[in-house]
Design a binder for these strands. Sequence first.
DNA 1: CGCATATGAAAAG
DNA 2: TTTTCCTATGCGT
Length: 292
Amino acid sequence: MPEGHTLHRLAIDLTDAFGGSVVAASSPQGQGRFEDGAAQLDGRELIAADAWGKHLFVRFAGTELVLHVHLGLYGKLRIAGADVLPDPVGQVRLRLVTTDRSDGRVTWADLRGATACELLTPEERDALVARLGPDPLREGADADPDRAWARIGRSRKSVAALLMEQDVVAGIGNVYRAELLFRHRVDPFREGRSMRVGRWQEMWADLVELMHLGVAVNRIETVRPEHEAAARAAAKQYEGGRRRRSGLSYVYRRDGQPCLVCGTQVRTEVLVARNLFWCPRCQPRFRSRAQR
DNA sequence: CGCATATGAAAAG
DNA sequence: TTTTCCTATGCGT
């Protein structure tokens, strides 16, 4: 589930679990891909983790190098604790372990399937962050919607495509994109430059709230209270008694099903290699003055 | 059990 | 535009 909220939540959880502690770092089944990196971190105190967009950074004492993790589509970083450290399962690229001195309990974090797991110099980290857009989950100037507007307001690309570009807004993924456009009744295919700045400011403010909620509950929840009952009922039909893992959604992965607001069939189409979902009635095709 | 699919992004061609 | 990374889940058999 790696959209921005996932990485910010992991940064919090990593800091809570390991911050101020000396960690053992290893790359048990990393097939040699991060053994050197793990060795450089082994035995150091973990200071803190933070995130920018979908990128996670972890700082350690006594080295300038910063651990950089990007989960990609299916990477996972799992943090857990127990009396006994379990054997690693699967391709564990990085394992961090800390042992409580008083009771001997262990806390560990296993990283699997990540697109990036590497050590960066401060310069490399800065260069990486420099090519990312503002992140709704960061504070102050790091979360400046005007920077995103400078790109969106002048672009001929579709809003749907722009929202997925990490140098426009950092942290949005396919779910937040589809749901944000629906919540604001925006036609995904309209050009960025056809938008008005006021609309973008509303969308950004909403995004800040939605993503903070996502961090708090550790999943993407986008359905307004007044539509929750309908969303739950609709989701139930497809659950078949199983426990629902993902959050409720208006349009994401609901293609062919009736829109929760107007009943029209939700549509899907591949746009820039990703599945886009929208309601053709709630998000009608935008026509510019020239087209009218 | 096997197989298709997924919330991403960079490299290859 | 296609391939790669190679995890976890959900579904059909």
